[in-house]
């Protein structure tokens, strides 16, 4: 038990060092910091404006009214925050490190390589999105006189964690392909554009697309399902399905990673 505790403290300590140094790196270039801040604010303003254009008062989109659609957008923005802070910088780094050969140093560390690659960088630029996402959700809920329910909140948290894990696993699998093809950054960009479809409720898409976005590219799991959960519109079946799906996708990413490492040839000196 003591050993376990120590290990947990160790992991916290490692993440602390990883994220501390990556934030310090961002701070080394103050001008870049201002430019990034402006870009984050501009992006968010754009998102809300598009939604506002799509909805007039009293109009509906796939059975979702303005307030409830804001909640979906809130979850999307929240997810985007995590993407900007963690997924994007780390996955980009995998591709770069494999290309320039510094990936060797990752493989020579005595801790899990997937752990290092997934959590090495924390970029603070996702934080505004996380704050705005949460604010949008709260704002949407207040518009429909939502009453506080701990059960619904815990459902929502579970579903959102599942959505994070699913998104992470898909992204990690795509990045893993760089072991063979070296440059797969474009594939990541395609993935990112598909995810944008999660901005709007899944039922606002035609039936065929809806099926694809639920089961092939699990965009529905990412934003619509957590939004449905907090609105109390979700069955426990979906909850169980999401948990199973996320666990499976996580293990798939791990197995695929271990498999891919056998083919790593290391860049020449």
């Amino acid at each position: 038990m003591i050993v376990r505790k120590l290990r947990f403290i160790n992991i916290i300590n490692i993440i602390n060092q990883f994220w501390g140094t990556s934030i310090a790196c961002e701070m080394e270039y103050p001008i870049n910091l201002y430019i990034e801040s402006i870009s984050v604010i501009g992006n968010l303003a754009g998102s809300i404006l598009i939604l506002k254009l799509l909805f007039g008062e009293g109009q509906e989109l796939g059975g979702w009214d303005w307030a409830r659609s804001l909640i979906v957008l809130g979850f999307y923005t929240l997810l985007e925050g995590f993407t900007i802070s963690l997924l994007q910088p780390n996955m980009k780094r995998i591709v770069n490190q494999i290309q320039d050969g510094t990936f060797d140093f990752v493989l020579l560390k005595p801790i899990d390589s997937q752990f290092i690659l997934s959590l090495r960088i924390f970029s603070p630029w996702g934080i505004p999105s996380v704050i705005c996402g949460v604010s949008l959700i709260i704002f949407g809920l207040s518009m429909i006189n939502w009453s506080l329910s701990l059960l619904l909140i815990s459902y929502t948290i579970i579903l959102f964690l599942c959505s994070l894990i699913i998104l992470y696993s898909i992204w990690f699998i795509v990045s893993t392909f760089s072991i063979w093809f070296i440059r797969v950054w474009n594939a990541n960009e395609v993935l990112r554009s598909v995810l944008v479809s999660g901005r709007y409720p899944i039922s606002s898409y035609p039936p065929v697309l809806r099926t694809i976005l639920t089961f092939v590219l699990p965009v529905a799991f990412l934003t619509t399902f957590p939004a449905e959960a907090i609105l109390g519109q979700i069955s426990y079946k979906i909850l169980i399905l999401a948990v199973i799906f996320s666990v499976l996708s996580f293990f798939a990413s791990r197995i695929f990673w271990k498999f891919a490492l056998r083919f790593y040839t290391s860049a020449s000196s």
Partner: peptide
């Protein structure tokens, strides 16, 4: 090839490695 973090002093890289090991 180097493992030191380019933008930060070596001390930061050393502390990262200390935690990893």
């Amino acid at each position: 090839k180097q493992q030191l973090i380019w933008d930060l002093p070596p001390m930061d890289s050393l502390r990262v490695n200390a935690s990893v090991y």
